[in-house]
């Protein structure tokens, strides 16, 4: 069984938002909404500053509260790669999953269902990288199987320092940020 995840190199990322634009066109994300976004995290005081730039999106958590709380089963874990998905036809738009996600990864599509990053499963199943990964001009994003020790993502994690977002929230995120 595969377990898809992303490894994003914050050292290379320039926060250009190409990943956000690409998600928009690839997935026809409605105006005013985004499935991914950039966080510019600045610490310190001028001029002694540190900045980490992160491309953020649904973490496809190993322990996904959004799936647990969904009353209809619309939010589910996909068989391929353990990707967390929403079955739009089952969703009643109760927003429980929106409230349950510590990352704010979900929003309600104007058509009434919960939407979020799909890890571009339609591309991945065709053997392509997710749209955001494939466009990133700095090549700072990597996608692959975390359970395969020889995958690019696994080797990067083995060789570089990294962190996840809000690990204390207990969701076991599967997007890792190299520092």
């Amino acid at each position: 069984m595969s377990r898809y995840g992303m490894v994003i190199d914050t050292v290379r990322c320039v926060g250009c938002m190409d990943c956000v634009v690409a998600c928009k066109t690839e997935n026809n994300v409605p105006e005013g909404f985004n499935r991914d976004w950039i966080a510019y995290d600045v610490q310190g005081e001028f001029p002694t500053l540190q900045m980490e730039i992160r491309s953020e999106r649904c973490n496809h958590c190993d322990a996904p509260p959004c799936v647990y709380c969904c009353p209809t089963g619309a939010s589910h874990v996909h068989d391929v790669g353990g990707v967390v998905l929403v079955d739009y036809d089952k969703c009643i738009g109760c927003k429980a999953c929106v409230a349950s996600c510590p990352y704010g990864a979900r929003f309600i599509n104007p058509e009434g269902y919960a939407e979020k990053c799909t890890f571009c499963i339609h591309r991945v199943e065709e053997g392509l990288d997710p749209a955001c990964v494939s466009v990133c001009p700095t090549h700072c994003m990597h996608f692959g199987d975390l359970d395969d020790p020889n995958s690019e993502v696994s080797t990067l994690l083995a060789s570089r320092r990294h962190h996840t977002l809000m690990p204390e929230a207990g969701t076991k995120p599967r997007i890792f940020y190299l520092t």
Binding site: V67, Y68, C69, C70, P71, T72, G73, A74, D89, K90, C91, I92, G93, C94, K95, A96, I108, E111, G112, Y113
Partner: peptide
């Protein structure tokens, strides 16, 4: 509910992990 016409979907399943 944002997707009101699917209201009935609540009663086609019982999701034991979901308080809702």
């Amino acid at each position: 509910l944002e997707h009101k016409i699917y209201f009935w979907r609540l009663y086609t399943t019982f999701e034991w992990t979901s308080p809702m």
